[in-house]
């Protein structure tokens, strides 16, 4: 199912939260389309969890407004909003002396849901925990507890699922399990809003990401953010350094500049890799260079993140 911004399920408008003199987040605006997987990134203390708590009606914003699952974020709508969403907190917060099923039954009651048994079975199926249903939660590994926490968020078929660092502290295999679950939920049309420190997972899973560092630093598709922040480029590697790289690269169609790559080879700034690459290959062949590879330089979401967060660090130091 594809996300649509014509039907935003979450609209945030200039939301701000302060605790005394400390600002948790300020002037944050964005919207999330129905069925979208939206990543919320930022360093520790950036205000991600506080934003999730605000949108989940646990914390009252100081100013600004928001619409969550079609309802204005007000105290009067708090109970109704909480019926339509689910939040998985960073720690799953399970009752250690109760079994998996007893934990889920409690939440079925709190949501006042009918057909509880069916819902519990469906939720446990979704997280592959059916065979552990009667296990006492204190006996489960961290990864399994996280899955129980996820199962709990599925009980009420939420319109928006907030996941606060769902893979925090998990090993790669357990984290992969959570990724598969998120992908499965996206396929079912659930809107997912998740905060993470793992930029690779955000890049792999999210339709769009926002980077928050008290204020919203940027928002967009990962590919768009890369293009906004970094020049497009080609990376050329050769077996031996070129005798006169300036003569080879300067003036080629589509090539705007070049520099030696500290890792070996050359980095070329280009307007369009599809135009520039054949020209560069021809020039290298003409120069009788021992070419090992010519490829488009890839900036990861991590590069985007570090660029923006480092800007903030530098600005704070000035």
């Amino acid at each position: 199912m594809t996300a649509t911004m014509d039907d935003p399920v979450l609209v945030v408008d200039k939301l701000t939260k302060t605790f005394g003199s400390r600002t948790a987040y300020s002037d944050v605006s964005f919207s999330v389309g129905r069925g979208e997987v939206f990543g919320f990134l930022g360093p520790n203390g950036a205000g991600k969890t506080t934003t999730v708590r605000s949108l989940g009606t646990l914390i009252t914003p100081t100013s600004g407004k928001a619409t969550v699952a079609g309802l204005a974020l007000t105290a009067d709508n708090a109970v109704e909003i909480r019926k339509r969403i689910a939040i998985m907190t960073e720690a799953p917060g399970l009752y250690g002396r109760l079994s998996v099923t007893e934990n889920l039954k409690y939440f079925v009651g709190l949501y006042h849901l009918s057909d509880g048994e069916q819902r519990i079975k469906k939720a446990l199926d979704a997280v592959n925990l059916t065979d552990r249903a009667q296990d006492i939660c204190s006996s489960l590994s961290k990864g399994l507890r996280q899955r129980v926490g996820l199962a709990r968020t599925l009980l009420n078929d939420p319109e928006i699922l907030f996941l606060d660092e769902p893979t925090s502290g998990l090993d790669p295999v357990a984290a992969r399990g959570v990724h598969d679950l998120i992908t499965g939920l996206r396929d079912r049309g659930v809107t997912i809003f998740f905060t993470t420190h793992r930029l690779a997972e955000a890049e792999a899973l999210c339709d769009r990401v926002a980077i928050l560092n008290t204020t919203l630093r940027t928002i967009g598709r990962p590919s768009e953010l890369r293009e906004q922040l970094f020049n497009r480029g080609l990376v050329v590697t050769t077996a031996t350094p070129l005798a006169d790289p300036a003569r080879v690269f300067t003036g080629l169609p589509g090539v705007e500049g070049w520099e030696p790559d500290p890792a070996g080879g050359y980095r070329l700034a280009v307007s369009d890799p599809a135009v520039a690459a054949p020209e560069v290959v021809r020039a290298l062949v003409h120069a009788e260079a021992d070419v090992l590879s010519v490829g488009e330089s890839r900036h990861s979401l991590e590069d985007v993140y570090l660029e923006l967060v480092n800007e903030d660090v530098e600005a704070n130091q000035r």
Binding site: V79, I85, I87, P92, G93, F107, Y111, R152
Partner: peptide, 14 residues
Amino acid sequence: EQGTLEPVLTTPVR
């Protein structure tokens, strides 16, 4: 202390 209160408060319970 056990971190179980916040998940409960995310539900519609008053």
